[in-house]
Design a binder for these strands. Structure first.
Lengths: 346, 346
DNA sequence: TGGATTAATCGATACGTATCGACAATTGGC
DNA sequence: GCCAATTGTCGATACGTATCGATTAATCCA
């Protein structure tokens, strides 16, 4: 596969190099005749423009930088729909995606912007106090945050509406006449990373429950994994085994272990105890038993992220509406909510 | 954050632009005094070289293209360790990773190479008859395949050694005195995608079992998911419920559902039936109960892939040893193999 | 001590595209 | 049928870096 230049195309088509360029970019009018000749030459040579040269001359790379988290402690499976959707929608506008890891931190952002590696940056998994946020503000490229930092300082953010998801979950528990909500915490180390989505969800759960006069207890941090889930369930049963309990589980990774542990204690979810998880529908459908959930919508989050990024690229300035764009959840009832007790039988 | 050029650095340091370039690339000797002055200027201006200009002038992008599969039917969680490791090791050599999806197919490869977007390409999830392989041979950049196509035609491949994993699994079943191996198939649609790792594993299982005189039955394609697993287990029990059975499950995604289904039938894995899965250790540790497995080693596969890519970049030609590099598995005994029956008690 | 090698630097040019200004040819209005 | 506006094309230049050849100064060896 030989690589030709626009000069080669120009020679074959019998026009100037600049004309080839104008055919490609469409920034000046070109006669139909010329366009055809140039296009034929392009096809014949299977010409493709050199990305580096194009970037140099036009000051645009047609690349979006995506900084994403890896490593242990990250909900690995949950990240892929983000990447997939971002890659897909970026390509739809002839953009590519350059992947960098959160591990690179602020230095990675410096590099992306300083070397002109990309036209815009999407940062996933933004923490409450994130070293990358103050830097991001001063970068010469548009930045979009997935997550909401304490001070977003004029940056565009897209995130799941943890608040609305919490409301949905509690309301459902109230509607189905539960005595008490048990809110399952995240592992301690996540708190240390200042992941504000945890308090955002939890506080709203507590708040709404109080407002509805529904007793609600927070069960402190579980490690992810089987054993922790078993202990947790044992504790819950010891304290409130006789009540009509509703578990709210905001952590995808412990949903299945807790469902197991309940079953192992002869409690059938949806019959002896209720569970609502905050997780993607895909995960909820695959749990055993399928869990009623308030959804995470990674694809919608990504869609809005890309949309906003292109808006920033096209218009330079943020969209007029709020800089913080929260994606609402949907509640899907599956098998893990107990039926409402028959009032007549009291 | 202003963006400076090497010319700015040169002015501040009082040298020629070319000298700055030589300080950066180290391709000519530079006096200690000059190097220091230039470095100071670089630090002062926080100068970073423009990637496009560098690519244009040097004909190297310092980018590795990574084509990876997404979408349903793909073992999503299994892919992340690949990306993570590749991104990490690429960065260790100051390379970045450009992500494209398998969906783009051969056209995507054309684009990566034709536009000079990257210096090398890693293609994940290569099928037996893969349209990308013949094209890859003629690309002007080195290509590394993860997976083994029918005709690798001089291309470097790295893959899991499905053959050796199969041997390990069968041998373990034989050693622990099982009457019969049940080999669980993959969903039909995967076969249609010509994923040759399926027959590579399965055929070797059958072969080794025959060689060891161990009856072995292949249970045709399960859909992934609960219901299919239940039916499958029911079928196995109906046919061979009285034998000392060993299940070999080469499909990560059905391991947990099958373990569930067994438990639901009052068969305790490791007590009434044995299971060996072919999956990552991470997955195996998190199943309920933890499953004995022959490992997938995505990190090692990625490590070798990157290593080979850099070898190709540095030396132009493939390494002298085999173009097909297969990563062996390790067997880790957990809780799902039945103890060897006491011989005295017969 | 002189000719030859080596070290250190500079200036000029190439990389491949986009884009500006100039120019010719065409069109439009009256 | 003339001036103005528009259309279509070309030539030249800029983008920021790497790299080649040339130059000067320093070093070496006989």
């Amino acid at each position: 596969m030989a690589r030709f230049t626009s000069k080669d195309v120009a020679r074959v088509a019998g026009v100037a190099q600049s004309t080839v360029s104008y055919v490609l970019t469409g920034k000046r009018s070109i006669s139909e005749e010329t366009r055809r000749r140039v296009q034929d030459a392009i096809d014949q040579l299977t010409y493709q423009p050199n990305a580096g040269a194009r970037a140099l001359a036009s000051q645009r790379t047609s690349v979006i930088g995506l900084m994403m988290p890896f490593g242990p402690g990250v909900d690995t499976a949950g990240q892929l729909p983000f990447i997939e959707t971002i890659a897909l929608l970026a390509r739809a506008q002839d953009y590519d995606v350059l992947l960098v890891t959160t591990e690179e931190g602020a230095g990675g952002l410096h590099r992306l912007a300083g070397r002109s590696l990309c036209d815009a940056i999407i940062i996933m998994d933004v923490h409450e106090e994130d070293e990358r946020v103050p830097l991001a503000t001063s970068l010469p490229v548009p930045v979009l945050l997935i997550g909401v930092p304490a001070d977003s300082a004029g940056l565009q953010c897209v995130d799941v509406s943890f608040e609305q998801a919490a409301e949905l979950a509690v309301t459902e528990m109230a509607t189905t006449k539960h005595d008490r909500i048990m809110l399952i915490g995240h592992p301690e180390d996540l708190h240390h990373r200042h992941l504000n989505f945890i308090p955002r969800f939890n506080n709203r759960v507590l708040e709404v429950a109080r407002h509805l006069n529904l007793p609600c207890e927070y069960i402190a941090s579980v490690e992810n994994g089987r054993d922790a889930a078993r202990k947790l369930v044992a504790r819950i049963l010891a304290d409130h085994g006789d009540e009509r309990l509703g578990l709210i589980i905001p952590n995808t990774q412990v949903v299945q272990p807790i469902l197991h542990a309940l079953t192992a204690n002869n409690l059938v979810p949806g019959q002896d105890v209720s569970v609502i998880a905050h997780c993607t529908d895909e995960v909820a459908e695959e749990t055993e038993p399928p869990v009623t959930n308030v959804s995470l919508e990674p694809r919608e989050v990504s869609r809005r992220a890309i949309e906003t990024v292109f808006h920033l690229l096209d218009n330079g300035r943020p969209k007029p509406d709020s800089p913080i764009d929260l994606v609402p959840s949907r509640l899907t009832r599956r098998d893990t909510i107990m039926p409402i007790p028959d009032v007549g039988s009291v």
